[in-house]
Design a protein around this nucleic acid. Sequence first.
DNA 1: AAAGTTAGTTCTAATTTAGAACCTATTATC
DNA 2: GATAATAGGTTCTAAATTAGAACTAACTTT
Lengths: 170, 170
Amino acid sequence: MKWHDLTDDACPLARAMGVIGDRWTLLILRECFLGVRRFDSFQKRLGVTRHLLAERLKRLETMGLLERRPYQERPLRHEYRLTASGKEFAPVLLAMQDWAQRNLPSPVPTPFTFVTRDSGEKVDPVLTDRHSGAELNHRSVLMAPAAASHAQDAAKEPKDPESPSAAQAP
Amino acid sequence: MKWHDLTDDACPLARAMGVIGDRWTLLILRECFLGVRRFDSFQKRLGVTRHLLAERLKRLETMGLLERRPYQERPLRHEYRLTASGKEFAPVLLAMQDWAQRNLPSPVPTPFTFVTRDSGEKVDPVLTDRHSGAELNHRSVLMAPAAASHAQDAAKEPKDPESPSAAQAP
DNA sequence: AAAGTTAGTTCTAATTTAGAACCTATTATC
DNA sequence: GATAATAGGTTCTAAATTAGAACTAACTTT
């Protein structure tokens, strides 16, 4: 499989991996949320090679998460800013940070946290359903194939004792 | 930077990337949530090479997201199941799928969706604060360095005009 | 005039991934 | 009782990606 193939996969998660499916991209986004905007700042703070950084920034721009805009002329210099799409990624980052903090413990303290803009208090994130307000987790939610088009794929793998047409309870 | 270095980074997001920072791991987890448990099923459904699949499953086991357990003897066979830690990853997957669906559009329909276990209706995920119930997004939340230990790092990069000690408003 | 700043690009070497073939143990089929 | 089939891997070589360092370009500052 080639890298680029993921970006037009039918599965949204696969497409997402076409953007953040490497060691660096999510960390670049983290820096963006911390307010970093310039090439050299990203490079120094992350320790990523300039070569890769340039490529990743280009990809984030292509995928619409960042925009490159001039912040001065003579000499012409550009900075990278989160677009609306990039900003909407915040809940993913937050959910991931929360998961990692709970499930991948570390002896050293967390270097930064998510706080509310008004009170400055640390947030305690829960994913809920916008309509019902119910908490969304492995117990309340099920991942289900969207009938029609997926049925064909499923047919390729006949009567598997673990066929995933209805994921089992925890 | 070597791969393994991320797994004991101070930043939880970096540690998370030590687990899912590649093209395949998240897709393996997706399959787990769809109910897949066996080596060959993962391999056929994803098209990943057996070599990499074996490695990734091993890593997911090491990191505590999956457990390998026998489901038969003669011949001895093992299957992979989500652990509690793996199951708690569900909200991250959900948030990411939601983001990708909204921000990385595709001409083809989404092959599977998240539905509630009781009503079977498609969910509409929002990240909220457990305490206040407020929606958590780029407008309401700020990523802030956790004062003390980070202050030293910040000192290394003196008076940067874009110093990220207080991330700016959207 | 020399050195510094900022944002890259261009090389070579090392590491990772792809792709195919092979191995082991056991059960099913001819 | 030999031959295939199933399941879960491992072992190769070739291709692609990443690391690391050096270099360029267009200015500005000392």
